[in-house]
Simulated assay, not measured.
Amino acid sequence: MNRDREETRSGELEDKISRLERLADRLEEASAEEVSGVLDRALGLLQEVGAEIEERLGELEEGEREVGSVLEGIDLGSIDEALRELERRPEDGGG
């Protein structure tokens, strides 16, 4: 379900970027009177895109904190000891 949500959000973001591109193209042909309106719409879209990016970054930071907490709780002592034991073993001369 989370994957579907991400795909939807990515699609919405792509749509906004596409709309921004169309507005940029429109600016090239816009009359002086239209420029202000086109720029207002572009600014609104940019604010939406920026807010979406900030939201996603916040979610990533939260996920990173959660992973960090889990990793802090894992005791890797037995694995470390097993690796040290392997390093102490003499190498086998055979191939």
Rank of each mutant, 00 (worst) to 15 (best):
L46S: 11
L46D: 04
Q47D: 13
G44F: 10
E59V: 02
R19P: 01
A30M: 05
E62L: 15
E61R: 15
S18T: 12
E61A: 13
E55H: 06
E59L: 09
R65A: 10
E21S: 11
A30T: 02
L39Y: 01
G37V: 04
E64G: 02
E66C: 03
E48T: 09
L27S: 01
L60Q: 12
G58C: 09
L57M: 14
D25T: 10
G50Y: 05
V49T: 13
E33K: 04
S36G: 08
G37E: 14
R41G: 00
Q47G: 08
A51N: 11
A24S: 14
V67H: 09
R26L: 04
L46H: 08
A30C: 04
G68K: 06
E61C: 00
S36N: 12
L20D: 01
V35Y: 01
E61G: 02
G63R: 14
Q47W: 06
V67T: 11
Q47N: 10
R41Y: 00
A30F: 08
E66S: 05
E59G: 01
E33W: 00
A51D: 09
E33G: 13
R65D: 10
L23T: 04
E62K: 15
E66A: 07
A30Y: 06
V35A: 11
S18N: 14
Q47K: 12
L23A: 07
R41H: 02
R22G: 03
L60R: 03
R41W: 03
S31P: 02
R26D: 06
E34G: 00
L45K: 07
R26S: 11
L39G: 01
R41A: 11
L45R: 12
D40G: 00
E59M: 02
E62F: 14
E64I: 03
G58K: 04
E48L: 15
V49R: 12
L46Y: 11
